[in-house]
Design a protein around this nucleic acid. Structure first.
Length: 422
RNA sequence: GCGGCUAUAGUUUAGUGGCAAAACUCCGGGUUGUGGUCCCGGCGUCGAGAGUUCAAUUCUCUCUAGCCGCCCCA
């Protein structure tokens, strides 16, 4: 005898029952609304990509150990997309002669990473990727950072709920060069810097000392020490001042923000929860000017950010800002006194549906009392029985379940009432 | 990949080396044209496998899964 099949979802992924899916959709609906207001258009692509797309730009460890990669039946190496940016770069490069730059594009969908699941991290998650493609650093960067703040604000977050920490890759590169770090040591230093907030100062210094005699951050702090560092720092501080002047008042300079170390070439930022109970980076982004050039042709500069559903939901819940679920539920439960009344009830429901009303018709032989209970459990706000009496009289008694009120209405007036009440 | 904790009904949890419990949910009935109450009944290989034992849901080991931390985080 075969073992019973498990009802659990695959490791690290979630089932979305209707309520859960509605919650996710409600969250992203808000985000879509904000992005539409800023002139961003939604695009999409298959989650299946050629594995080489990621091998070209990412470290070997990530591709080998942290992606879902397999051979298809035609011996093609396939990867389930772990992020959207390479796909975006591929799509942009593929139609670079036809697209109207600058592009303001976003995409919302699932991403796959083969990792050990833990708090805030799953093997499949949903993410909104927002990008402004085709403009060099300057106004585009300011728009992207302000848009990141606007997305949170439209989700109900206050400025006091989060802080935007901004840094610059050229600044870090200049500081590493000033401290005499090799390219390899610089890369390891960035990785260390990323962890600095979690370490004791002594532990940080000890590890740092193994990479260089002087801490590159010292050059960032002491602007007089290296002209190249000073120039990059001034540029970044000017940028932050611009953001403040345009209303993004919770943007601050933070020299420890590194944002990984792969394709970023300019400004990088991370949005942090200000609540001490949830001290995580919520999301981040930055400028990547060389990615599109991997597909040939002139480089196309770009700047963007990505916002995942798991950390965002944590954030909204800690601040009690989770949007109410968009209500696509039925408005009216149409009860059937006897099983034989179902065809007439469906026919009546069809006329209501024709008016745009969401109607649930009972198909069971349960008693009307049980059907009322059923409507309550399903959260359907209105109940009406439809049987021979109603068909003959053309009058329906509609009950508002929350209050118990009943109103006898001409059948033709139901759509009006449903629209008014919804 | 490494480590910690956990696993008993659909859910949340008690409990015991000797007959497995409660609450809620669900299903059926009391109650065949309209409310959540109430009453009765039903729904378990105690995560899987092996070992110790007269006897294991309980003790031991292995595995699996979940949660949490490390690594990593594009």
């Amino acid at each position: 005898m075969a073992e019973r099949l498990s009802t659990d979802p695959y490791k690290g992924v979630r089932d979305f029952y209707p309520d859960g899916w509605a919650r996710l959709q409600a969250m992203f609906a808000r985000i879509r609304g904000t992005l539409a207001l800023w002139g961003y258009e939604e695009y999409n692509a298959s989650p299946l990509e050629r594995a080489e797309l990621y091998e070209a730009k990412t470290s070997e460890e990530i591709v080998n150990e942290q992606t879902y990669t397999f051979m298809d039946r035609g011996d093609r190496k396939v990867t389930l997309r772990p992020e959207m940016t390479p796909t975006l770069a591929r799509m942009v490069a593929g139609k670079r002669r036809e697209l109207a730059f600058p592009l303001r594009w976003f995409s919302i969908g699932n991403r796959f990473r083969y990792e050990r699941p833990q708090k805030g991290r799953l093997r499949e998650f949903y993410q909104a990727d927002v990008d402004l493609v085709g403009l060099p650093e300057g106004e585009a960067d300011a728009e992207i950072v302000r848009l990141a703040a606007a997305v949170l604000a439209d989700l109900g977050a206050r400025e006091s709920d989060f802080v935007i920490r901004i840094n610059s890759r050229p600044l870090l590169d200049a500081a590493c060069a000033a401290a005499g770090l090799s390219a390899d040591a610089g890369r390891r230093y960035l990785r260390l810097l990323d962890k600095k907030a979690k370490m004791t100062p002594e532990a940080f210094d000890a590890e740092r000392a193994s990479l260089s005699a002087r801490d590159p951050l010292a050059f960032v702090d002491d602007a007089g020490a290296a002209p190249a560092v000073a120039a990059e720092k001034k540029k970044l501080l000017d940028f932050i001042a611009t953001l403040e002047a345009r209303g993004a008042e919770n943007a601050v300079f933070d020299a420890t923000i590194t944002r990984g170390f792969d394709y970023y070439t300019g400004m990088v930022f991370e949005v942090y929860d200000r609540n001490p109970a949830n001290p995580r980076a919520l999301f981040g982004g930055g400028r990547y000017d060389r990615l599109v050039a991997l597909f040939g042709g002139d480089p196309i500069p770009a700047v963007g950010f990505a916002l995942g559903d798991v950390t965002l939901a944590d954030f909204l819940e800690t601040h009690d800002r989770m949007p109410g679920i968009a209500d696509g539920r039925p408005q009216l439960y149409l009860g059937t006194p006897r099983e034989g009344d179902i065809p007439a009830a469906q026919a009546f429901a069809d006329t209501l549906r024709g008016e745009g009303c969401r109607v649930f018709v009972n198909l069971t032989d349960r008693s009307l009392g049980d059907q009322v209970r059923d409507a309550l459990k399903r959260g359907i706000p209105l109940f009406a029985a439809y049987g021979p009496e109603e068909a003959a009289s053309g009058t329906v008694r509609m009950k508002t379940l929350a209050t118990g009120e009943e109103a006898a209405l001409p059948a033709s007036e139901l759509p009006v009432r449903l629209k008014a009440g919804s």
